[in-house]
């Protein structure tokens, strides 16, 4: 059986959704409460990292593959940049909070602060996917220990590839 014990797996099955939901909450309410795109993104990534640890890379890979995570990484950055560029078009300056100028909204309500929640969402996508990618890539590295001719164990971590 791959992954950790049954206890860990069961607990993970119960809490993984809540962790994900908590990450979404931190991102979406970033302009009202402590937290924001980065902190929420880290929590989103944590839910996937927990899945990887408790089950296996393959299970986590089924719900969020490396290719998709890589795409999301770029998408998040591009959303952030396009919000900034839309500021030039609508508000007359890079990163101008043009939505807030059009409809300020009521302070301390969910729909307020203009582009800041949108920026938080973009950062959340970017941070969550790239942190998950970093974890996957680090866990993909493995150290190969092989016996040398005189019987000593040597660590062979050099990749062989054509130059």
């Amino acid at each position: 059986m791959k992954g950790m014990t049954l206890i860990v797996k069961t607990v993970t099955r119960w809490v993984k959704g809540f962790i994900f939901l908590f990450g979404l909450y931190i991102i979406l309410f970033g302009h009202l409460t402590p937290g924001g795109g980065f902190a929420g993104g880290v929590i989103l990534a944590c839910s996937y990292i927990l899945l990887t640890l408790a089950y296996s890379k393959e299970v986590a890979h089924r719900s969020l593959s490396r290719a998709v995570a890589s795409e999301l990484d770029s998408v998040g950055a591009l959303i952030f940049l396009s919000i900034a560029l839309l500021g030039i078009y609508f508000g007359g300056g890079f990163f101008v909070n043009f939505i807030h100028r059009l409809s300020p909204g009521e302070p301390f309500r969910f729909l307020s602060a203009g582009i800041i929640p949108l920026c938080n969402v973009a950062i959340g996508i970017k941070v969550g996917s790239s942190l998950f990618m970093i974890f996957v890539i680090l866990s993909a590295m493995r150290v190969i220990v092989r016996k040398s001719d005189n019987g000593r164990e040597i660590i062979d971590n050099r990749r062989k590839h054509p130059r």
């Binding site: 890589s70 795409e71 990484d73 770029s74 998408v75 950055a77 591009l78 940049l81 900034a84 560029l85 030039i88 890079f94």
Partner: peptide, 17 residues
């Protein structure tokens, strides 16, 4: 002026996408 930052940043993420 901001385009000097926006253009390379934008292309940097467009290319892998």
């Amino acid at each position: 002026i901001p385009l000097f930052i926006a253009i390379p940043l934008g292309f940097a993420f467009l290319i892998p996408m």
